[in-house]
Computed example of a mutant assay.
Amino acid sequence: MSLHTLILRYAAFAVVATIANLASQRLVLQFGETAVHFAGAVGAGTIVGLVIKYVLDKRWIFYDVGTGVKKHGRKFSLYTAMGLVTTAIFWGTETAFWLIWQTDMMRELGAMLGLSVGYVVKYNLDRRFVFTDRQLAAPA
């Protein structure tokens, strides 16, 4: 895969996961806007975005076509662990924007900024530590 294709594909998947993340947050925030609702919204959005991004990255970025619960469990665990670092970037940025401006628009802008920076860091971590199998399928 060319670098251009990789960047476009990874960016598109990041956008899909971001939209799913923010939609999940909005859904949770329909039930209230307390600190508990905010924490639940951020958590739910993160889980939804994580699962979607893992499935897309595994198959279409790293060409990992491996099967099996044990192998998937290990990779998803590593993928999630790498995401802890980048999630801190995302949550910190989103929360800072919310605390400073206290508007949904600025919270979402902070989320998008944090997710963008986080995804660049995450790609590099995943390439180095998660999707390392020598037998990964070659891109067509």
Score class of each variant (00 low, 15 high):
residue 3 L to N: 03
residue 8 L to T: 06
residue 9 R to W: 00
residue 10 Y to F: 13
residue 11 A to L: 12
residue 12 A to K: 03
residue 13 F to M: 11
residue 13 F to G: 10
residue 14 A to T: 12
residue 15 V to P: 05
residue 17 A to V: 13
residue 20 A to Q: 10
residue 22 L to D: 06
residue 22 L to R: 03
residue 27 L to K: 03
residue 29 L to Q: 12
residue 30 Q to C: 05
residue 33 E to T: 13
residue 35 A to T: 14
residue 37 H to A: 12
residue 37 H to T: 05
residue 38 F to Q: 15
residue 38 F to E: 11
residue 41 A to G: 09
residue 42 V to I: 15
residue 43 G to W: 05
residue 47 I to A: 09
residue 47 I to C: 04
residue 49 G to Q: 07
residue 50 L to G: 01
residue 51 V to K: 07
residue 51 V to Y: 05
residue 55 V to T: 07
residue 57 D to K: 02
residue 60 W to N: 02
residue 60 W to A: 07
residue 61 I to A: 05
residue 62 F to N: 00
residue 64 D to P: 01
residue 67 T to E: 14
residue 67 T to D: 12
residue 67 T to Q: 15
residue 70 K to C: 04
residue 71 K to L: 13
residue 72 H to W: 07
residue 78 L to M: 13
residue 82 M to I: 05
residue 83 G to W: 07
residue 86 T to W: 06
residue 90 F to S: 12
residue 91 W to T: 10
residue 93 T to G: 00
residue 94 E to Q: 12
residue 95 T to I: 10
residue 95 T to N: 02
residue 103 T to N: 10
residue 105 M to P: 00
residue 106 M to I: 11
residue 106 M to R: 10
residue 107 R to G: 06
residue 107 R to K: 14
residue 108 E to V: 13
residue 110 G to Y: 07
residue 110 G to T: 08
residue 113 L to V: 15
residue 113 L to A: 15
residue 117 V to S: 13
residue 120 V to N: 05
residue 120 V to W: 08
residue 121 V to W: 02
residue 121 V to I: 11
residue 124 N to Y: 15
residue 124 N to D: 05
residue 125 L to C: 09
residue 126 D to I: 13
residue 129 F to M: 14
residue 131 F to V: 10
residue 132 T to E: 09
residue 133 D to Q: 14
residue 137 A to N: 08
residue 138 A to V: 13
residue 139 P to M: 09
residue 140 A to T: 01
residue 140 A to C: 03
